[in-house]
Design a protein around this nucleic acid. Structure first.
Lengths: 147, 147
DNA sequence: CTCAGTGCAAAAGCTTTGCATAATA
DNA sequence: TATTATGCAAAGCTTTTGCACTGAG
């Protein structure tokens, strides 16, 4: 997809201009993260990475994720589990709809975001920086199975 | 506060009717959780508990929290950190506004919840079970300090 | 008296770190 | 060549578990 390639190049440029080296490991991990459907965790990424570079280490995965997070090139998302998930910070914010039946994750449209943000900011006199919305429930398929 | 006492008794009744024993440790932990301002983590709870019962163990804290969670008497909340926080599931849902300056946590009013829920449920044909909304930003105090 | 609950210590996940080696700029 | 990044192994944190003992019902 056109956008993914663009975003990949942006990442490489950021590394470069931060004086960081573009290694095979970093290239591979960036590629996997951009190619992936998001919501990868470190272990999953490690598993995928080893298919291409069997000698890559889990430390490198963690170190790379931390670095990318600090650069703002990936974001950490916190689900119910006790470990972190990572995704490319999309134009979209973190508005997820998670199916309790099959685990499917659906993105929620942005119009709501603006509405919520404005509403809360006004009511509480806060300057809102980030919004994270997570809803759980049952998708149509799983709902039918339950009935 | 009147409400906290009520909610404490509800918890004890739930334990009782589930055939679970009401021990000193459980009484103490329930009390601390209800007395607390919410968003306690296991370690903080352990620290507080030891002031009253020096021999209580961290395992007991974790076991009790898991039990209370399963009974629906406390809820696990996931913030940025890599460990869990617990709070009494209030009439209110998990709608938090967190100040990035001082860490203050403000509850968001419920009207929004209904609006969001209905909107998303309609648009995505999901049956929504739970909504978790977390916004970060700067409270009036911290905003002024920054300027 | 009995069995659920506890404390302790040990283990189990996930994540980070120290250090010698390898690879980039 | 000069550092930065890597792999490996070991350590660190948070959370869970096994087991013998304690205490609630």
């Amino acid at each position: 997809m056109e956008n993914k390639t663009k975003s990949l190049w942006k990442s490489r440029r950021t590394l470069n201009s931060s004086g960081l080296r573009i290694t095979n490991q970093r290239t591979l991990l960036l590629d996997l993260i951009h190619r992936g459907e998001g919501h990868l965790d470190a272990d999953e990424l490690y598993r995928l990475a080893r298919e291409k570079q069997p000698r890559i280490s889990l430390s490198t995965v963690y170190r790379t994720l931390r670095m990318l997070k600090n650069l703002g090139l990936v974001e950490e998302v916190h689900f119910d589990e006790s470990h972190h998930h990572y995704e490319v910070p999309p134009a979209k914010e973190h508005h997820h709809l998670v199916c309790l039946g099959c685990g499917k994750v659906v993105e929620i449209h942005k119009a709501l975001s603006r509405y919520i943000k404005k509403n809360v900011a006004d009511a509480k006199d806060f300057e809102i920086i980030d919004t994270e919305l997570r809803m759980t429930g049952f998708c149509p398929d799983c709902r039918h199975k339950r009935e």
